[in-house]
Design a protein around this nucleic acid. Structure first.
Lengths: 143, 143
DNA sequence: GGTTATTTGTTGCATTTGCAACTATATGGT
DNA sequence: ACCATATAGTTGCAAATGCAACAAATAACC
């Protein structure tokens, strides 16, 4: 059995914990401001970037959401008028999702609150150099 | 409105993403090995440390679980015979939770699998020095 | 001592997530 | 062309989570 040094175990534990704590604070702040959860923002951001509309599976890959889950998230967002689904011309199975004007508006309204929250819980507590180093480490872990 | 440098936004995004990806891999591995989710391990570990038994709220603080949620997690674990709840002598409202022999056995059985998973997704991808630095940064974020 | 506010834990209800099954289309092999 | 297999997305059902309301006991205040 592999012996993992305590310092690494501790780093692992802190990674899990810190992400949970910080993310929860951010979500709470959005909620307090009467805004939808972060997942909505993620979807809106991707849609806003992918101008021609995106296939569902593309969204799923980018925001790391399983397809059934995404399917229903999109249901909710579509019902609120934030996006549109239309059948995909090249692939009869799929649909193309695109953001509505309403969706763009929501995204723009969410960003300041989200940014303030990130600043409060994260960006304000770390220097640019530290953030760069931190980011590199995270990327290495993801590879 | 605060302007957050791109590098910090990216670091934030990676923190969220990396934790999700790595944690999911670990959870999946436990599941594949026929074992309960990580939350069970966390509870068992705390109980194993706190020899005399712990109050529920103490467990909740340590593993960052809200009380209603914890209440039901403990229900499930108690039903499986991993722990015991008995009324607290000093405080008529609360209960004292303690681990059973069965619970200790489960924790010991889970650890090798969990450790191997941590090694695979985290510890094996980072040097001790990097882990130390990383850990410090996370701690700073948590303060 | 009596009243009010807090804390501890549980429960009901709505929302979300995860899993497996399903439909429908597309792809690959022969 | 035909059959098997894989992919895109949806849906039903079970499990987990979040929220608000609640009971019971303690602590705080006068």
């Amino acid at each position: 059995m592999k012996e993992i040094p305590d310092a690494k175990i501790q780093a692992w534990a802190r990674l899990i914990r810190a992400q949970r704590v910080l993310l929860e604070r951010v979500e709470q702040r959005l909620k307090d401001a009467g805004m939808p959860p972060l997942a909505w923002y993620d979807v809106l951001l991707e849609l806003d970037r992918g101008n021609e509309g995106l296939r569902q599976y593309e969204i799923g890959e980018r925001i790391l959401l399983s397809k059934h889950n995404l399917s229903r998230l999109l249901d909710r967002m579509e019902k609120e008028g934030m996006l549109q689904r239309r059948p995909c011309p090249e692939d009869g199975r799929g649909s193309v999702v695109s953001i509505t004007a309403e969706g763009r508006k929501l995204r723009r309204r969410m960003w300041p609150e989200y940014a303030a929250a990130i600043d409060e819980v994260f960006a304000g507590k770390i220097t640019a150099a530290q953030a760069g180093e931190f980011s590199n480490t995270l990327q290495r872990l993801l590879d």
